[in-house]
Write a protein that binds this DNA or RNA. Structure first.
Length: 327
DNA sequence: TAACGCTGAAAAGCTTTTGC
DNA sequence: GCAAAAGCTTTTCAGCGTTA
């Protein structure tokens, strides 16, 4: 399969028929070489432009990313994740966003970690291709936490379990017994409770969208800071190597530009720190306000607070060290 | 110069604590 | 378990600076 040059197609996503696109993606998912070639011919410009438009990277970085994305997409595996529930544009930009993040991580590893390593048997291997993806290690830890969490939840009294699940109803499902309990407690029919839960989830999804947007902002700020630091280093080098009389006058404006870049770095760094602090505090978790839980159960908000404290205690005991399992 | 984004103060809303 | 008070967090909005 040959690789086309970015720039041959403009705005391919918007200009292509939806059904035709779905068929093309489906064929790519089945590793159809012709379809993959067609896909890259159509979307090469989108792939190339994406890191510049969204992450404000320069053209050199965009070229490097394009090669990386080509290597990652050419086997067709990623195309199988497109289920057609969202628009092609949404799916494609999500894939590209994740690839940019993967690529940035890879670039950092290349810069900071020895490239060649040896396994337990003494065999040499390449760091990027053969080591476990750090996220898969994290996933194993997450699996473990989730197991403890569900175990703790299943041993809780029905009342605690129901309050806890309603508080995190965006992520959790009520069992038949819990639904029955909520219905009896509030004096409503189970179907009525289910409708309220559906409405609540819809409201909470707005919050989730804001959370996703904030997560994206963290990544975007991080990449902007890297970009600005590179720019700062280039300016410092230029100022340091200035020696002629004519260049000395330009030095003043470079110094002013350098100060401006330094200010921008501090500003973006502080913004990112604030968002990370919020994330660390669990503000990116979609929790049902106690007011709604109290309304659903027909109990005071204070009681919801007390029950939630008890539920959290039980979960903390089940998995010592985790102050909030969903954080 | 308009649009956008950030900041800080005030108001509103939410959660926790306390006393019964 | 409840209600009220206290404390904390979030939202709103005006003013200001930055950017395209």
């Amino acid at each position: 399969m040959s690789m086309s040059i970015p720039g041959e197609h403009k705005d391919a996503i918007g200009a292509t028929d939806v059904d035709e696109l779905r068929e093309l993606v489906r064929r790519c998912g089945h590793k159809d070489r012709e379809a993959l070639q067609d896909f890259f011919e159509r979307f090469s410009r989108d792939i190339y432009n994406f890191p510049m438009k969204v992450f404000h990277l320069d053209e050199d970085a965009a070229s490097d990313f394009y090669l990386y994305a080509f290597e990652r997409l050419k086997d067709g595996g990623r195309f199988q994740s497109f289920e057609g529930r969202s628009s092609f544009r949404t799916w494609f930009y999500t894939v590209l966003r994740n690839l940019v993040i993967d690529w940035m991580r890879t670039v950092r590893e290349i810069e900071t970690i020895q490239v060649t390593r040896y396994d337990d048997s003494g065999n040499e291997y390449s760091l990027i291709e053969n080591t476990a993806d750090p996220r898969s290690v994290v996933s194993e830890v997450d699996e473990n936490i989730i197991q403890h969490f569900h175990q703790a939840l299943s041993t809780m009294p029905l009342e605690l379990r129901s309050v806890f699940k309603l508080s995190y109803i965006f992520y959790l499902e009520l069992s038949r017994a819990e639904l029955q309990y909520v219905a009896e407690r509030s004096g409503r029919a189970p179907e009525d409770v289910l409708r309220s839960v559906a409405r609540l989830r819809h409201q909470l999804s707005e919050k989730e969208l804001k959370n996703i947007s904030a997560e994206d902002k963290i990544t975007s700020l991080y990449l902007s800071v890297i970009d600005l630091k590179n720019r700062r280093d280039r300016l410092i080098t230029r100022i340091a190597t200035t020696d002629s009389e004519a260049s000395l006058s330009a030095d003043g404006s470079r110094q002013a530009e350098l100060e401006q870049v330094e200010r921008s770095i501090r500003k973006k760094y502080n913004q990112r720190e604030k968002l990370l602090y919020k994330k660390h505090r669990g503000h990116f978790v979609v929790r049902t306000p106690y007011r709604y839980v109290a309304e659903l159960l027909g109990i005071p908000e204070g009681s919801v607070s007390v029950l939630m404290m008890r539920a959290n205690d039980r979960i903390r005991q089940a998995h010592k060290g985790d102050t909030n399992i969903l954080r």
